[in-house]
Design a protein around this nucleic acid. Structure first.
Lengths: 267, 267
DNA sequence: GTACTGCGTTTCACACAATGAAACGAGACC
DNA sequence: GGTCTCGTTTCATTGTGTGAAACGCAGTAC
């Protein structure tokens, strides 16, 4: 899926609309017409029509009647509906809760989006040290330097590292960030072999975690979960040992539940 | 959808794509192609192309590779971005927190979407009796029988009640629901006059609340806040008295902060 | 005051993108 | 094997989305 759509199917106007929404998402607190026209590379008139269409649909709004466009409430409604509808989250929740309670560390559930970013679907906070991690449901994070991300990349077929390189996504966030393609590829094979991914302060300084991919009914990974905590509390040995084992077991259980849920629907 | 866009500007393909997303949102856990084709009234081939386009963009996904389409992660990302970008929420939060702490009752912040539904932007739970209300950030609720909704409808110009009638939205949820247009109109004038809206178990049995509209810099209402609690704890007199006063004051303060924030940006 | 500049808006003729009918193929069911 | 139903593909047609350019309206400079 390096192209936007499998075949040459692709309704151009819709792709363009999505591009504008993405620009608005990236832009802090909205952008004026001209800016969007410039950065999208489309004609001003086209952008104008698009934005007005999106505004009428609630995907975009202009505070009172000003000239700066920002994302609209409709986006929130859809996002919330997505969360409610995904059975992944529903099935995973009890398992994640047990995991959190057992170690009292922060637990995450996440997937990759089409840009190879990690998107958090669930976050269960540890009772200790709440708020040191900047993760949050719906937020995105880079995949090459997070536990969730690396676990999911390792489970992808094709050449995810290549895709990341193309996008110039291999930024360095901390001294530990693996930012060289070759090294990242080695790391991914290692992850596949041992069945879990580590993040040793590669994204946020002071935060370590262990993550495992969750296999869906079809056998391929549909999500991943992680257990994360402050570096001074979680030793690398415990990450590799007890925590990794617990994470793998939890991932396996969620996978089974997903299969069961699917079969139930089918019947 | 009495006219999706002001003039005749409206990119048809985008409007159609939005219609499909809305259908998926309403449908529990996804829908197959044929169903979407039927309920959207579009040709099967068109729906097919649309869905594939949306899938490529991440707005829609198919679990493994099945035939049922559901909303995709991209929706969640946008929704989260919307929440983070709106300065309404940012400015309101500290004020709402004070309000919640003062009475230890659940506090809401919400807006109307383009279909005249209430959308919750923030919910601060009371420490007592958590979970009796089904509200949640990003969820929608009817406007004619909620405090937030009525406060916002009352502040709208035009004929919001007429719009609700057209949509057949005046459903009855409890014996107390105001479902007659004429009566609702009277209620709205009453609300405008006294400056706050009540919900006396009109939406959820056992839940009462008082709500006030928040005026943005331009003077018109941009949102509303409410204080809600179980009927047996919050007496109607205290709703009309102490709580209403506190809600009005909080709404006023948020309005001022919004004005200030806007002016800051402008400078 | 005028000239200028930067913005959102509108117009318009053209081109080709999006469309839907219909044909196709795969799988399930009987 | 026949007959459904469903997703997929093809293809000719047309009307939709397009961008260049013109417009109008601010604000600013001078």
């Amino acid at each position: 899926m390096t192209g936007v759509v499998a075949r040459d199917y692709a309704v151009r106007a819709v792709v363009r609309a999505a591009r504008l929404l993405e620009l608005l998402r990236a832009s802090e607190g909205g952008a004026p017409l001209n800016e969007l026209a410039a950065s999208s590379g489309l004609a001003k008139a086209s952008v104008f029509r698009m934005l007005r269409t999106l505004e009428g649909l609630g995907f975009v709004e202009r505070p009172d009647g000003s000239d700066t466009y920002r994302l609209g409430v409709r986006c929130l409604e859809l996002g919330q509906a997505y969360l409610e509808q995904t059975d992944l989250r529903r099935e995973a929740l009890p398992v994640l809760e047990r995991l959190r309670d057992r170690f009292d560390e922060t637990v995450h559930l996440g997937v990759l989006d089409d840009e190879y970013r990690v998107v958090y679907l669930e976050k269960l906070d540890s009772t200790q040290a709440v708020g040191i991690m900047m993760s949050r449901v719906g937020k995105t994070a880079p995949s090459h330097c997070t536990g969730l991300g690396k676990a999911l990349l390792a489970a992808r077929d094709g050449d995810p590292v290549g895709a990341l390189v193309e996008r110039g996504a291999l930024r360095r966030y901390t001294p530990n960030t693996i930012h060289r393609p070759a090294e990242l590829r080695r790391e991914l094979t290692r992850i596949t072999r041992r069945g879990y991914a580590l993040d040793l302060e590669e994204h946020e300084p002071g935060v370590r975690c262990v993550a495992c991919a969750i296999d869906g009914p079809s056998g391929s990974a549909v999500a991943a979960l992680s257990i994360a905590g402050p570096a001074q509390r979680v030793a690398e040995e415990s990450l590799r040992g007890e925590l990794a084992a617990a994470a793998r077991e939890a991932a396996r259980e969620i996978g089974l539940r997903l299969g069961a849920a699917r079969r139930e629907v089918a019947s």
